[in-house]
Design a protein around this nucleic acid. Structure first.
Lengths: 221, 221
DNA sequence: ATTTCCCTTGCAGATATCTGTAAGGGATTT
DNA sequence: AAATCCCTTACAGATATCTGCAAGGGAAAT
């Protein structure tokens, strides 16, 4: 089993619960837990310098901001920095994110080894994930279905840019002009009209206000 | 100190961390933890029936939905049900909500005894809160400033209804008609126009799309 | 009583949005 | 080569939005 594990999790209660479990259930000799990404990174670096690197990093994705100044502000940044420093380190993400396409991106882009979704079985699943990862397998919380990723209604890049611009208060004419300036094509006002109308049908919206409200609430934009 | 404490918290890791701490730091003889509001309520009821009621309820606000059917779906509903059953029970809310006006409402409407904000000192603060509440005092996490509640730009009821209607895709004419039907006044299309334009100024929005996007992102609607 | 202030309402004009129709171009199929 | 499909674009007409201006009414101040 792993000899050294680093835990990055900013909630004290959650942090405590996980550390306790790691010690009891898995008898990990060395467990370090940190409340800030920067401090976690420093620990990794020091361990590498001392030639006693951590075997596993368990990290959350979202870290609250407070008065402390931060360089690394999210789990994503921490993972990238860690991999840069120590490419072979195993990574388990432990977060409340449950959007399959976002989790899928973590495996594809960051090559994480496991994803555990916080919830009623989060701790049990985490123990399982650590064992799987130790044996060079990947793990995903059973509640998450990466296949049935809701790509059915996933927004493509172009439509996304239109929606973001509308949400920023630009008119369709302004969007058309911006697209022309940035060499984004297609870019006629008419096409933008058409795209938005098509989204009305796809998402069952009555008008632009309705569409934007839906998209933001569903965290598509 | 309290003899019996009930903890309602759906995240297994957080739940574990808190239970552990209650046992170690405060030597509470009986601690029950539940992952569902309904189960927590059943425990309260059983304890009351047995004439050995809980002295304190610690609850989260948001509970994830899953396959299990639920009657009580939020901490708010649990608190109301608990107070209905056992009016004198002490209540501490432990959640990640950090909006002062919403927390203020919990004290005013639900008469909760303490509010602890999850975060880097959440567990330490919770211990403190329990001691304070035991001595019949209230407690709020120091990071929360109930005085500087962002009421400066709080929406009044009327403007809120307009925004919600717009976000549902109604036109201003339709909103005007709805208001007339529901005897809400003022209700002319002109006034609704004016109110929305005024909000453009207040919130620095360029148009309706922009305003709705801002309001939803700031969780005003 | 008069003035002042603020809100509601109506109206009008300039823009913006939404929905069709239709023409043209590129890619694929037949 | 011709037909088909899909996307882009232009344009037009009906609505909707946004911004003024002006009139009226109620409440508070003078």
């Amino acid at each position: 089993m792993f000899k050294k594990i680093l835990l990055a999790e900013d909630f004290q209660d959650t942090n405590q619960g996980i550390s306790e479990m790691l010690r009891e259930k898995l008898q990990i000799p060395i467990i370090r837990d940190e409340l800030y990404c920067d401090k976690a990174y420093n620990r990794l670096k020091y361990a590498v310098d001392q030639r006693e690197p951590f075997g596993l990093l368990i990290t959350d994705l979202f870290f609250k901001g407070d008065h402390v100044e931060r360089k690394l502000t999210s789990g994503l940044e921490l993972i990238q920095a860690a991999r840069n420093l120590q490419p072979e380190i195993k990574v388990i993400v432990n977060s409340m994110e449950d959007n399959p396409s976002k989790i899928d991106a973590l495996f594809k882009d960051q090559e994480i080894n496991a994803y555990v979704c916080k919830g009623r079985h989060g701790l049990t699943e985490l123990v399982r994930a650590i064992r799987e990862v130790y044996h060079n397998r990947t793990y995903v919380s059973p509640g998450i279905d990466l296949n049935v990723s809701n790509n059915v209604f996933e927004l493509e890049e172009f439509d996304l840019m239109i929606l973001q611009s509308l949400a920023e208060g630009l008119t369709k004419k302004e969007i058309s002009e911006k697209f022309k300036k940035d060499n984004i094509t297609p870019n006629s006002e008419s096409t933008i009209d058409k795209r938005v109308s098509k989204m009305f049908d796809e998402f069952g919206a009555k008008n632009t206000n309705h569409l934007i409200a839906k998209m933001i609430r569903e965290e598509k934009i």
